[in-house]
Design a protein around this nucleic acid. Structure first.
Lengths: 159, 159
DNA sequence: TTTCGGGTTGATAATGATTTTAATTTGACA
DNA sequence: TGTCAAATTAAAATCATTATCAACCCGAAA
């Protein structure tokens, strides 16, 4: 964990940015909530618990900076807010997401499923891919189980 | 073209909505700019050219309605605005996008590239897919040609 | 024909996320 | 120690989007 912070620190330094206490607090929150998909506001509230003097604008600026350096990815699931997601270290590509339309849960797929598809796109469309975003919308395994037990109104209407 | 409007009209009627003149004007703008990815504001300005009395709120409401009925898809490329894209008639899935990080152009891929990937996700993650979003970020063929001729600063630094 | 009611609209106010501003603080370095 | 640029804060500003509400349209019932 510490080493991860250190590497991020070096990454910042290499672009002549500093890891200020505020930035460190923000990064720590991201590390401690790696499986969540926090909005800027979420991050702000969590950072505030440990460093109450931090300002919302600073959190926004830090997240923006981290996104520029590709330390985090800024994602958008269609609710009005941007969410921020740490990249796996050394990951060539951004991971994928499963968004449940029933319960809103967001699961991650770290595996790269797009290797073949990207080859097709690069060849057939002559497009040099730098990154991608892949999100599936559907029903997660938890809600599927739920529906088996106590069918919801929608589930009944589907038949 | 007219028949397309008619089908959309029927689609609306089937859910007991009307194709009011304002809604029709909005749909026409979408049809006439099918390859663009217009924001609500863009649509508003274009509709206003022919129907100056239309209100911004009405355009927003209409786009929202069309999105609900799956006539358009609401997409988000990470700039602050939602964009609206007509679905291909009868398309089971949403088409994909190529966003150029040099010039900002957005191209579409109508072909479904995700058939195999979706099978994997449904089986391995037990996730029932209803829809997807796939966007590639990279350099479009136009900008690649450009770089060959007159290399930009970035292009030089890449070497 | 008149009245009623629901759906629709347009102008405007309100909201909520994000960005900018201006003043202040910090920290490295001369 | 003094200086300067970067970073920070709180507050104001901005921008996209949504909610409000009075007015309107139009078909059905009286």
């Amino acid at each position: 964990m510490e080493s991860r912070i250190d590497r991020i620190k070096k990454h910042l330094h290499s672009q002549s940015y500093k890891l200020t206490p505020q930035r460190e607090a923000t990064v720590r929150v991201l590390l401690e909530n790696e499986e969540d998909h926090l909005s800027a506001e979420d991050v702000y509230l969590l950072v505030k618990e440990k460093s109450p003097e931090i300002g919302l604008a600073t959190v926004y600026r830090t997240l923006e900076l981290l996104a520029e350096l590709k330390i985090v990815d800024k994602i958008n699931f269609g609710d009005g807010v941007s969410r921020f997601d740490l990249r796996q270290e050394g990951a060539a590509h951004f991971h994928h997401h499963l968004v449940c339309i029933e319960c809103g849960a967001v699961d991650e797929i770290q595996e790269d499923l797009l290797g073949d598809v990207e080859k097709v796109v690069e060849n057939d469309w002559n497009f040099k891919i730098k990154d991608h975003r892949l999100t599936f919308h559907g029903i997660c395994y938890r809600c599927q189980k739920q529906e088996d037990k106590e069918p919801t109104e929608q589930a009944i209407n589907h038949t």
